[in-house]
Nucleic acid binder design. Structure first.
Lengths: 244, 244
DNA sequence: TCCAAAGCAAGAGCAGTGCTCTCGAATGTG
DNA sequence: CACATTCGAGAGCACTGCTCTTGCTTTGGA
């Protein structure tokens, strides 16, 4: 049945997959801007017009690759998290962040595709939303678990942000106090600021020991959303004083 | 002199400027990927090949636009800072950050050009470095001023990061303690994470009140590098406790 | 089983791109 | 004035995304 009626359908999904694979290969090698339908078709031994039976336009192919990239990143992050699911929140947080960084460094062009400048005139369709949310959902799950246990002091929210935090918290994590929700949203964006600067070369000749730097920055980020070592109660570690 | 010998030279700089202006216009409207040499030439009433007398390739034109964008952003930030040069560090920090955000939102395509994914196969030449550093230098100047006065407690640096911080601090701000140097590097990247997420649409349907959110996040960022309100001594503001 | 319908690959073609080369004409310098 | 340099224009190459038409093959219903 699935083979009989699928003789054609199966061929279709196979060709579709082959196209995406070859496109992904070109994407990884040359980047999104140099992804050429004709080159993909050429490599697959077919003519360019035949490709339009599978993807109505170049942008549609890109959209498919975007979703795949989000899913690949999400899966990588989730897999890394699985292995330390029993550890404390700071460790889980750090492991997930480092997995995201690792994926980004291993797939810079795909990272650029999803977190870099959007292709001009291109608006990500809603179909990308679920895949795109995976990392964020994973991270906020960790934060929720952490706050289910011990609470932690966070800076008070300005009055102007209260409604925003309440609204955002309802969709995302109703059990989290507004301070944490806002802090998380910021940390979420800031995490990709750290990663983006590294992937896009902004740290060249600036930061050398990227691993150590990232580890430290991510730990601080974790503190910012209220993740603390079990024995901690305040804002983390001893301090040093500077100034005259 | 400048008019006599410049009859040709002046025409050249004028045409060069006209090309950049038109290119910038197309960049602002359609984005870098759709910037077409032929379209620029067409709009200027000349033939495309003539344009190669002024810019040897499309990438060279883009490089010129990149430097201009960095300079435009740097100047905007510096101008905003001038007006509050006498204020306290937190205010100066916030004003500069908000100026950067404002510029990014007003010039999204130019922002994408300099802080988004780099054009594939394109490596920013060293000539862009000075212009690119302006914002960072401005921000660290604020941090230095702040730490020249009162010091503030920052989390201790892990041992593995000490050498990195020392090295980076030598080039950047020898008078700053290593903790602050590292915290600043992170805050610098994180700032552009916040702005990038907003400009590139990652906050769509997530964060609504962008101004308030950014103000709050940036204040936290400032605290992270040791900027405090004069009356403050610790890690800022009262806290609220969450959890069961 | 046969036949119309649908799916598909191939080719030609259009409008556009970056870039190169050549050829006159304008312009600055001795 | 004469020479050399600079510049604009045009033709042309190789490439792109995309459309349309022409046949062939597979599919599903009578």
């Amino acid at each position: 049945m699935s083979t009989a009626r699928g003789a054609r359908a199966r061929a279709r999904t196979e060709v579709t997959a082959a196209i995406k694979d070859e496109a992904r290969r070109q994407l990884a090698k040359e980047g999104a801007a140099k992804l050429s339908l004709r080159a993909v078709a050429r490599e697959l031994g077919m003519v360019s017009s035949a490709l339009y039976r599978y993807f109505p336009s170049r942008d549609d192919l890109l959209t498919a690759l975007i979703i795949d990239a989000y899913d690949s990143l999400g899966q990588t992050a989730e897999a890394a998290h699985e292995k330390v699911a029993d550890a404390g929140p700071i460790r889980r947080w750090a492991v997930v962040c480092e997995a995201v960084r690792g994926w980004a460094l291993a797939h810079p062009h795909e990272y650029a595709l999803i977190y870099g400048s959007p292709v001009p005139g291109y608006a990500a369709p809603d179909s990308t939303v679920p895949a795109a949310s995976r990392v964020a959902l994973l991270l906020i799950e960790i934060v929720r678990d952490a706050h289910r246990g011990v609470g932690v002091a966070l800076p008070r929210l300005p009055a102007e942000l209260k409604p925003e935090a309440r609204r955002l918290g309802q969709d995302l994590a109703p059990d989290l106090p507004p301070e944490v929700v806002m802090a998380f949203a910021a940390a979420w964006a800031q995490l990709f600021g750290l990663i983006g600067f590294e992937v896009f070369g902004q740290f060249n000749r600036v930061v050398e020991d990227r691993e150590a730097f990232f580890r430290h920055a991510v730990a601080q980020l974790g503190h910012g959303v209220g993740l603390v070592f079990p024995q901690d109660t305040g804002t983390g570690g001893g301090g040093s004083r500077s100034g005259s």
